[in-house]
């Protein structure tokens, strides 16, 4: 299926979903405002912590806010677009996934097109607000590379989180009831990459910043944006590796998904 065909299909399917959500406008507005306020409380906790410290792991509050904002936007967009894949285990156990296999559309595209959680926009906006604060308050020496790197990193972040959601869902094809494990990598990964890697020990770093390459879309670009040295001594080209790493990770997630679906087609529901 060509990209343009896929996009048209997505547009039509998502259109119905969005219209149906907009019907319940009051509920949507409430969800939206609630999530907006809740997520501000989330960052407020970081601010409270910083009343006691000048810097954490060598990073000041505005610098942490940069990481927080980048990570937050990434996971919020991914959650909005493909977060619903977390619920695939319901369709797998019930056998409703059979219907997905009966349609002449790639399975992952169908999952993506099955929902667009508008209420998550609250979290996106909150993270953008934190990011704006970070850009205003942190001392960034802007140059063309930095101006380009920021949006690239954020967009790659959304893809990496999206691929992580998919990989987490793949696990549920094999292990019943394993749904929560995925949140270690998605929401846990988000929490981790809101802070500099220097805060965490080698095991956590390996698992949650490299196995799932979230560090490449938050910490490393952050180092370049803020012109900070890396006390952990990672090579400097890591700071520009976001697009490459993202592409490899997304392709891997796609292949694992294919394998998961093949498993479903061998064993039934």
């Amino acid at each position: 299926m060509h990209v343009s065909e896929a996009w048209t299909m997505y547009r039509h399917l998502i259109g119905a979903r969005v219209r149906s959500q907009l019907q319940y406008r009051t509920s949507l507005a409430l969800d939206f405002s609630v999530s907006f306020v809740v997520t501000f409380l989330d960052f407020a906790v970081v601010v409270v912590l910083f009343q006691h410290l000048p810097a954490l792991g060598g990073w000041t509050l505005p610098e942490i806010a940069l990481l927080y904002g980048m990570s937050g936007i990434g996971i919020a967009i991914a959650d909005m677009v493909i977060g619903q894949v977390e619920d695939i285990h319901v369709d797998i156990r019930s056998g409703q996934f059979d219907v997905v296999l009966l349609r002449p559309v790639p399975t992952l595209l169908q999952v993506m097109a099955s929902d667009l959680a508008l209420r998550r926009i609250g979290r996106v906006l909150q993270s953008v607000a934190v990011l704006v604060y970070a850009l205003a308050a942190a001392d960034i020496a802007w140059n063309p590379a930095r101006v380009a790197l920021l949006p690239v990193a954020v967009v790659c972040g959304a893809f990496v989180f999206g691929a992580t959601f998919v990989l987490g869902a793949c696990l549920t094809f094999w292990v019943v009831g394993s749904t929560e494990v995925a949140s270690t990598f998605t929401y846990g990964g988000n929490q981790m990459t809101s802070y500099p890697l220097t805060v965490f020990g080698p095991w956590l770093r390996r698992m949650l910043a490299f196995a799932v390459p979230l560090a490449f879309v938050t910490y490393f670009p952050g180092l370049y944006l803020l012109n900070k040295p890396d006390p952990l001594g990672y090579p400097q080209w890591f700071q520009f590796a976001a697009p490459l790493v993202t592409a490899v990770f997304v392709v891997t997630a796609g292949l694992v998904w294919r394998t998961a679906v093949r498993h479903y087609r061998s064993t039934g529901s």
Binding site: S94, G95, Q96, D98, V99, L102, P104, V105
Partner: peptide, 19 residues
């Protein structure tokens, strides 16, 4: 699978094709 899906129609008692 995809090409076949265009040529057949399947109705299940237990699963729904509808939204």
């Amino acid at each position: 699978r995809v090409e076949l899906a265009r040529r057949i129609g399947v109705v299940f008692g237990q699963r729904s094709l509808l939204w």
